[in-house]
Simulated scan of single mutants.
Amino acid sequence: MRLVAEGLGAKRGEDLIFQDISFEIASGEALVVKGPNGSGKSTLLRVLAGLLPAETGTAKLLAAAHPVERVGEAAHYLGHRNAMKRELTVEENLAFWKSFLGDVEGGAGTSIDAAVEAVGLGGIAHLPFGYLSAGQQRRMAMAKLLVAWRPVWILDEPTAALDAAAEAMFAGLVTTHLAAGGIAIAATHQPLGLEGVKELRMQGFAGVMEDVW
């Protein structure tokens, strides 16, 4: 499996944010997107997730069986917001995402109990999501990545509001996902504790070219 982006460009309003972004990531690989504020990191992730249209270029997931023309159909997106209803319990929120997203062919998500245990918060899934601290809420949002199997994880500042122990926990989740043949793309200013990752450095506004290594 390979995620291939070719000549991607995107606008914010009428302004071109970036152009000519191309990269390739294979199963078991992670790409970290870096750059100054306003350089288009979050916009690039949203384009990949299908939440924003690309002005130019394409992104495809080339699998053994057949290519996925829209990467978002096989991806989890974890953005700045946790995408969980405050009034519902953690279990109800995760049950919704497990049912709504479903498993992509070739994998199987974990149970809700196993996902909650994996993020270190077993025993509190019965609580309303809004009762949790900011760090606990972020951990529970990460559990969403586990309950439905999606080969691509698209992560925007995923360790925001986390302490050092939680950051290490999340690095373990990503490492396990990559070991299972998954792909991860993360925009962050902080190290994720992953080894051997590729980097894409966004340089600025219109006319930007990317560096990948």
Rank of each mutant, 00 (worst) to 15 (best):
L45N: 05
P53N: 14
R81F: 12
G107W: 00
L132Y: 00
A10D: 02
L51D: 10
P67V: 07
V116F: 00
I185F: 10
G172E: 09
A148N: 02
F170L: 14
R12M: 10
I17S: 14
L127H: 03
L45G: 01
A114T: 11
H80I: 09
G107D: 11
H126I: 07
K144E: 03
D163C: 11
L45S: 03
K41W: 13
L8P: 01
A49H: 03
P158H: 10
E105Y: 07
S111Y: 02
D15G: 15
V32I: 15
A115K: 05
E24I: 13
F205S: 15
A26I: 06
A160I: 14
N82C: 12
L132S: 01
V4C: 11
L45F: 01
P151C: 08
Q203K: 13
A54F: 07
E210W: 00
I154Q: 03
V152W: 01
V4H: 08
K34I: 09
L31M: 09
L88V: 09
P36T: 05
P36H: 08
V32R: 13
L192K: 10
L61M: 08
A63Q: 15
K41M: 09
V208R: 14
L8A: 00
V116E: 03
M140R: 00
E69V: 13
L121H: 00
V208P: 06
M202E: 03
A180S: 14
R70T: 10
A83H: 15
D211K: 15
T89S: 10
R46T: 02
A118L: 10
V116C: 04
G120K: 08
A184P: 04
E195C: 12
V212S: 02
A165F: 14
A171P: 08
Q203W: 03
M140F: 01
F129R: 00
F100C: 14
D103E: 11
S27V: 03
E24S: 12
Q136I: 09
T176K: 15
K34G: 06
W97C: 06
D211I: 15
H80A: 12
R201K: 13
S22I: 08
E167T: 15
E29W: 00
R138L: 02
A180M: 12
G13Q: 07
F23K: 07
G172D: 05
W153Y: 08
